[in-house]
Amino acid sequence: MTAPSTPVVAAPSGAATRRASSFLATRPRVRLGLLLAAPLTWLVLVYVVALAALLVTALWSVDSFTGEIDRSLTLDNLREITTESLYRTVTLRTLGVALLVTVIDVVVALPIAFYMAKVASPRARRLLVVAVLTPLWASYLVKAFAWRSMLSEGGLVDWVLNPFGASTPGYGLTAVVLTQAYIWLPYVILPIYAGMERVPDSLLEAAGDLGASSGRTVRTVVMPLVLPAVLAGSIFSFSLTLGDYISVNIVGGANQMLGNLVYTNVGAANNLPLAAAIALVPIVIMLGYLAAVRRTGALDNL
């Protein structure tokens, strides 16, 4: 309330602010609306509208000779990607690669994160965090091409494996899994490391005092506590692999993943609507994955 002695003319802006604030104070909904307006506009424009545009584009078609887009709605593209065996095969292949990359990354990341959070001295911990982050300084392409030359005939991998009677896996799905697992590893280590740090040391000590073996402590104390972090990390490696097409192009040999189908349909075939329809596949898979993760309750603890 304005004090009666305050001269209204002397501070008009102050009065306006005060009037606005008293207006907002009694209307929580307007307050909330104003607060959320900017982020919501961004979210709606960038995500929801883009997704809607993708969905609508998937319903269009293309004139094959002139390459002009025909904007009449048809379900042909969606029918094509659901019925043709090609898309099923590629979807399954992509899913398999994404799952394998995720499993490898989690298996490698868990011990590293545990060591960083619980065993290493503060000084070593800082150095390890830097070491984990260093690969992110190099460009994705540089790393993928580095793997291409390492996996080539007579390359580094060949040279290391030859004494053991093995040879390079060559370009193919194995190479894709290796490259992707390497590239996304930091994104999996960091959330798990953050999760490990939040596990109280006292719990580990208590488990030890009560006679639990190391394995049992990890299984029944550490794992349940870091599971949300592991799932968060897995979302990174899984979704990033699901949409990737560059490393497949570089080290994947003749294989295609979903991203390549999108790429060829935009770049080579000039069929944007079909590309949009294919792009819906990883989105649907990701929605399913997120829903499954949500059921575990992992998202509540992030």
Binding site: S149, S152, E153, G154, G155, G170, Y171, G252, G253, A254
Partner: peptide, 23 residues
């Protein structure tokens, strides 16, 4: 033929490199 193809090329430098290394 696809069963025997190591990789397809459209980038001419990629083919050049693959022949140089013997891939």
């Amino acid at each position: 033929q696809r069963g025997h193809v190591g990789e397809y090329w459209s980038d001419y430098l990629k083919e050049a490199q693959a022949f140089k290394t013997g891939d």
